[in-house]
Structures are given as C-alpha cells and as structure tokens.
Design a protein around this nucleic acid. Sequence first.
RNA 1: GGGACUGUAGUUCAACCGGUUAGAGCACUGCCCUGUCACGGCAGAAGUUGCGGGUUCGAAUCCCGUCAGUCCCGCCA
Length: 596
Amino acid sequence: MRTYYCGELRTSTIGETVTLYGWVDRRRDHGGVVFLDMRDRAGIVQIVSDPERTPNSYPTAEDVRNEYVIKVSGRVSQRPQDSINPNLPTGEVEVYAEQMEVLNAVRQQLPFQIASEEADAVRENIRLKYRYLDLRRDRLNQNLHLRHQVVKAIRRFLEDEEAFTEVETPILTRSTPEGARDYLVPSRVNPGKWFALPQSPQLFKQLLMVSGFDRYYQIARCFRDEDLRADRQPEFTQLDMEMSFLSEDEIIDLNERLICHIFKTVKGIDLPRPFPRLTYNEAMSRYGTDRPDTRFGLELVQVSDIVQDSGFKVFSEAVKSGGLVKALPIPGGNEQISNVRIKPGGDLFKEAAAAGAKGLAYMRVREGMEIDTIGAIKDNLSEEQKQELLRRTKAQPGHLLLFGAGDAVTVNKSLDRVRQALGEELDLIDKEAMNLLWVTEFPMFEWNPEEKRLESLHHPFTAPNPDDLDDLKTARAQAYDLVYNGIEIGGGSLRIYQRKVQEQVFEAIGLSLEAAQEQFGFLLDALEYGTPPHGGIAYGLDRLVMLLAGEDSIRDVIAFPKTQQASCLLTEAPSNVDEKQLKELYVVSTYDPEME
RNA sequence: GGGACUGUAGUUCAACCGGUUAGAGCACUGCCCUGUCACGGCAGAAGUUGCGGGUUCGAAUCCCGUCAGUCCCGCCA
C-alpha cells in the first residue's frame, strides 16, 4: 500500500519506511550504485540502490529504464551533506530501496523523452498522437492542474459567495440561424431531422431566468464548426453566467470580483479595482480595435479633419468617400524604422496590407521640427496643415508618423496590426503587466456587405440602450467585453426581456416575423409569461487558462485537443462509420472513394 | 477557400552553390564506473531524407503534384 507520494518526502519523514509508486523519471548508473529519480503526481524523489546496502533491489535497479512503472519500499534517509540537491523540494532526502518491483516496463522506444527539455520542441503531430505521454510531462501536467484550480476558484466564488446555481443545459439542441456553423447530429427516431450541438447555452440560460433561478452558471462545452486557430478549437469551454434584476454596473462589479478572486487564488495576485472602462468608440478611435492591448502606448490619432481639404488625394479622397485618416506616432521611430520597411515589400507594409491597406504614408520629424516625407505629401499639404498634424500627434524630433487612409474598417485594422507589431518589436510591452479592462457601449449592429443586411455584433438577444430606441439601427447595445492584455476573454450583455423589442431586433437583422416565430418562437413566447430583466456573460475558459499559464495556444491547456484540420491524432477522429449506422439514421454519406 | 512556414535515425538538429559511405546530441543495445542529479567513459545498432512524379551523368538539396503539422487571412452572432 502506498504510504506517501514521492514528492511529499521531506526531512520530517526521515527514518520512516515508505512505499512509493511511480515512474522512473531518470536513471543514473554508477556501476556500483544506481540513482533513480522517481516521479509521481506530487513530484520527484531520489531512490538509491547498491549491492551492499540494498542487495534485494539492486538487480532490478540495474534493469529499469526511463518511464518504467515501479513500486519501491525503503527507508527515507538524510542525504550526505555534499549531495543535497537544492533544486528539488525533496533534495535533502533519499530513499534506500529495500524492495523494488517493476509493475510495467516500457516495451517500445518512447516517441520522445518525457523528462527532457527537448520534448517542448517535439513536432506537435507526434505530441498529439501520443498525447497520454505528452500529458505526463511537467509542463502540460501543470497546465491542467492550473485549469482545475481556476475552475475550482470559480465554483467556490460563484456558489459559496454569490449563491449561483449550476444547471446543465442540453448538448442535443436545435439549429438556429445567425452565428457560427453548427455541428449537426441526425435523429434516428425522427428521420430526416437534425439536432445541433450548442454554440453556447445562450437561450437556455435566458429561459432559466424566466424560470426564476435568478443566478445561473455553468462550465459549459460549446461547439462551433469553423476554422481553427491557436486560440480556437471546434469544441471549447465557456464559463457561462446569467443573472436577473441586476444593472450593467452591478453585473460588471460582480464579475470584477470573480476575476480578482481567480487571480488571487491561483496566482496570488491582487488586481486593482475597478477595472478601467473604454467605450467601443473610444477603443476604436485610440487603438483601432475593440480589444486594445493597453500595456503600451502608441495610440492612434484621428487627423481626417486636418487633411480632408489637402491636395494629397490619398488623404482627401479617403475622407470624401466616407472613410478616415489616422496617424500612428512612434517616438524614436526615425532611428528604429527604415523607409524600406514601410514601402511595398517591407514587413510593416505587409502587416498593413494583410488588413487590406494599400500602403502606409509616413512623415519623419527631424531636428528643429523639420518634416521629412515623400514629395506627394510635402507638396500637397499646406504649412498650417503640417503644423496642425505635428500638434495633434504631439510629434517631437525623432518621431515617425505612419498614416492609414481609407475606409474606417481598413484603417483601424491595419494600424492596429502595425501598432501591435511595433509594440512587440520595440519591446514596449511589460510582460509582467496584467491589464484588464472593459469595453462597453458596443453598437447593436454592423453592416454585412456580402449579405446586404445588418448583423448583430454581439447576438440578437442583446438589449439596446434605452436612450437609443428611436433609431434601433444605430443604437448602442448594453454589451460589455472583458479584455486581458489585448485578448477578449469574456463578453456579455443585458438581454431583451420584452417581446416587442425582441421582434424589432429580429426585424432589423432581416429576420421576418414568420422566420423568427419558426426559429425562436419558444423564446418569444417565454417573453410573454413574466420575464425578469436579466443579463449575463460568458468567458472563454480555455483562453483565460492559456493566459494564466503563459501559453501561446489553447491546445496546451486542453487535455485532448484537435489539430487545425479539426482531427484528433490520438483517436483518429473523425472516422468512417459503418454503412449500417448511416442507414439507421436515414443518412446517405457524400463520401465516395471511387470518385477520388 | 487563400497565403506562408515546416517535414532527414525513436527524437532534436546538421549536411555550404546539385557530387560524403547522409552526420551529431539525447534515447536504445552491450561493456566499464560506489555519491550522481542533464552523471561520466568505451563500443554498437539504428535512415524508403513524408509520399509520387519530373529535370540531371548525378537530387535530402532544383521543379511539379500530393499528404501531414503549424501560423495567418477569410470565417468564428
């Protein structure tokens, strides 16, 4: 029977005879004495075996190899003074192995070494195929433990401090328009009909408010059949919350306390409260994005009004056709950024071009506030316009001003990209900083040029600001996002709780009354039976844990993630299924090997 | 759907401008070593250079295609 975990042994355990179970992390064979680093979930301890002191175990100790599973019994001893290992919590002690038993050997060459630093560099497809070995490694092990700690902190806070109730909502539910592509599941019992896996429990949690639960939360799995990224998996986990009778400020306050509790519990960090808030318009204006990274400056400056009447067509035409011109002033940029990088072919140009920009105009501010720029700008801007540009951008000698001109979306997107690239490159980002902020007052809708209709920016159940009800199309939403170091980790809103408003919003996004009744009739009906004012939020748990773990990919905080091709290299899912299964489901597969 | 990068022993990497017997560390096998902790030393085995074509006297290297992984754009209410 196990008496201790390997990692638990300390000087206080010296003299005890212990029984340990675990893996051989490393083996050092000196011919006459063998040292084993023995590992279990709690850590590593050194096992010693030699022919004189531990004759029973020595033959076994000579035979074992890395990652063998062993059982060891023996006395915990103080290490000789000159052999103490200060790098191990157990470094002052070691166990003389009176008994050693191999419970399971490693029969094949390991695909990679578990205990080696090199394993971090192993090609990811190999790590994913042998995920169970990858998860043995300290780094991933720690990540999943951290994830558990985060979830535990969430539950303690929401349940014990704030009286939230966890309710499970269906995984088999109905497909609804809007939003991401659905994962579909055929219904055997209802031939030709389909379930969809939930993109989020949105409607169910609202209905729970109608039912009077008042405060709901769920650690909920969500599914979206869209293309993957480092921070996007087809199935992911949300912390989903919904509350009745709370104002936007009250919801934000409760959530700040939740986030602070998480940071305090798992990282020991006291975050300053309240978190800063930016309106959507402010964020777009100053950073060109609705999730600004405020760990560094380099704020954008709106200059449309200065240059709209200039002879420089790139600027004036942009403003005339409804777009804008913005500047990105870079202190010291003259020294650090060459023209080659700004011009076509350069890396900063490419950064802007990736967002659809046609180019980057620039001005350099020399000694004595002399302006150094391309002829087209020099010749076509008046002296007053140039001076006003310098004033507005607070330019000083040494400054480089980059300009974006065009439609608002492209200008903001491209300058945001350039700003982030430079923040990184010029080492302006304090890596220790943890900047959490709220972005509020999102617009209700944005225009989708392809489908020629308005779309909900958040989702169609978001309540409009009551001050903006006379023109819903341009109304602000009572929505809020939580941004952590430039990454959106959560977002929510107050919801519509009146049928009439809900119908108006559906109408605004081009959903006819009939279609709305067909798709969302159950919600519209519910709104007629005494629905309380309510609102909520959902967090991307994987992203939050990724950031807390300092990882760059959510795959490193998910036990069994999928590849960018949405497949599982471990189980080889998705796979073919038996023709019989398809028949039972009244489904004809499109897969036809003959066609290939 | 599109762009970029990567693919060489189990693994991490090397192999210069197209010419070697395709090398090295770790792991593996054998031997030596009684205080190491990334132990050390000696010897050895280990390769369809992702796969398929092509160019060439000659291809890991150049070209085309294909597969896989990663990053990004589109997409993700």
